[in-house]
Amino acid sequence: MKIDAFCHILPARYAKEFFELDVPAVRNLRNRTRAIPALTDLGVRFRQMDEFGDYRQIINVAAPALEDFGPPARCAEFARLGNEGLAELVAAHPGRFAGFCAAVALNDVDRALEEIDFSFTELGALGVQIYCHVNGHPLDEPRFDPLWARLAESGKLVQVHPNRTAAWPDYPAESRSRFEIWWAFGWEYDLSAFMARMVFSGVLARWPGLKFLVHHGGAMVPHFAGRVGPGWDQLGTRTPESDKADVTGYPLAGRPIDYFRKFHVDTALFGAEDALRTVIRFYGADKVLFASDSPYDPEQGPGYIRATIGNLASLDLTDAERNAIYHGNVTRLLDPGASTAAG
């Protein structure tokens, strides 16, 4: 059994409103999204899924982040529309969809908490999908503390997705990122910076019940373990006294690297077997969840699923480790009612 823990979709009513919305973030993605039939066409999606046998997906609303849709009231409306659509898909096709993670707009925390409560209690969401920043603001700002408290209390998954755009330049002297560097490298920096802020600001220490699922295998962290480990053990030694505020954070009870290992991560590495091997060695098989990022592959659906399954088959894992990655870990992370739904 395989539960794909990070897949994107556009429910029908949400898609209709999404394609009619005239804001820069939507204009930027409209053509790309329309070119991927599996985001909206269930027939196409299900035919792709049939290739993989006993296989189901945990779905969420495809990018962009809701905060990019305009005023907070509009963002909240799209969150509700998306979540009701996701819930309908799961209810109508339980053999295809193991559950969903709710969309939430964090530019109004009070509204976000209302949507989270509605999605968890009325719609049965398994968790939420958030992005690495909110209109450029880091998520360790104090205004987000009620969010972390609520999510930690819930015990639900918190999927973390990157959201840098070409408007974030590669060099200070420039105004735009070129060659999609913002995506290829920038998204992995996005995720890594998010994790670091959650560690050093004390979010993880204050709310140890948080169940973060970081996309793309934990991004840069496992591949830069020397910097995250002995490098950050020397935090502050590179910073002059006049800038000590830059390195003053929450007092951690152990090494920074120990906190980075508290995250759960997925296998959405696009077929990079050596990278996946490093991810599993760094986090351990009990912290890695099977996920493909479908349908954003060159085949527009099955390519990354097939590649990831092939990677996991090739790696030197025990059957127990492989099964934990495929379905055991995500089932264990869900609350009792949700874990039953997920199989």
Rank of each mutant, 00 (worst) to 15 (best):
A173M: 12
L86A: 07
Y55T: 04
R255F: 08
F263H: 10
L315Y: 04
G218N: 06
L334S: 09
H93Y: 15
F260P: 07
R111A: 15
E51T: 09
G343F: 11
L89R: 06
T318V: 01
T239C: 15
R13M: 09
S294W: 00
D266A: 06
L126A: 15
V90G: 02
G95V: 02
E122F: 02
K262A: 11
D316E: 14
A65K: 05
Y304D: 12
W187D: 08
A125P: 02
E241L: 15
F144A: 01
D293S: 05
G202E: 00
V104S: 10
G70D: 00
L123G: 05
P37C: 09
V160C: 06
A91F: 04
R45D: 09
H8K: 10
L312D: 04
G310C: 00
L29R: 14
R32F: 11
N135F: 09
D266H: 02
L333H: 09
F282E: 05
E180F: 15
G217P: 04
R164D: 09
G218S: 03
S294P: 03
I3R: 02
T278N: 04
N83G: 02
E188I: 11
A338K: 06
A25T: 12
R306T: 04
W183C: 14
I58W: 01
R27E: 12
E67F: 01
F78V: 04
H137V: 13
P142H: 07
R164N: 14
L106D: 03
K262V: 05
C7G: 10
A15Y: 02
P11V: 03
C7A: 14
A320K: 09
H133G: 03
R30I: 10
L157E: 08
P64M: 13
E153T: 11
L157G: 11
S177K: 05
S314T: 14
G70T: 00
N323G: 14
G85D: 04
L333F: 08
V228A: 14
L81S: 08
A12R: 15
A38I: 03
D170I: 00
R74C: 05
G284Y: 02
G271L: 01
V330W: 06
R238D: 15
V214R: 08
L113T: 09
Q300T: 08
F97N: 01
A338M: 09
H264P: 03
T278K: 08
L235W: 02
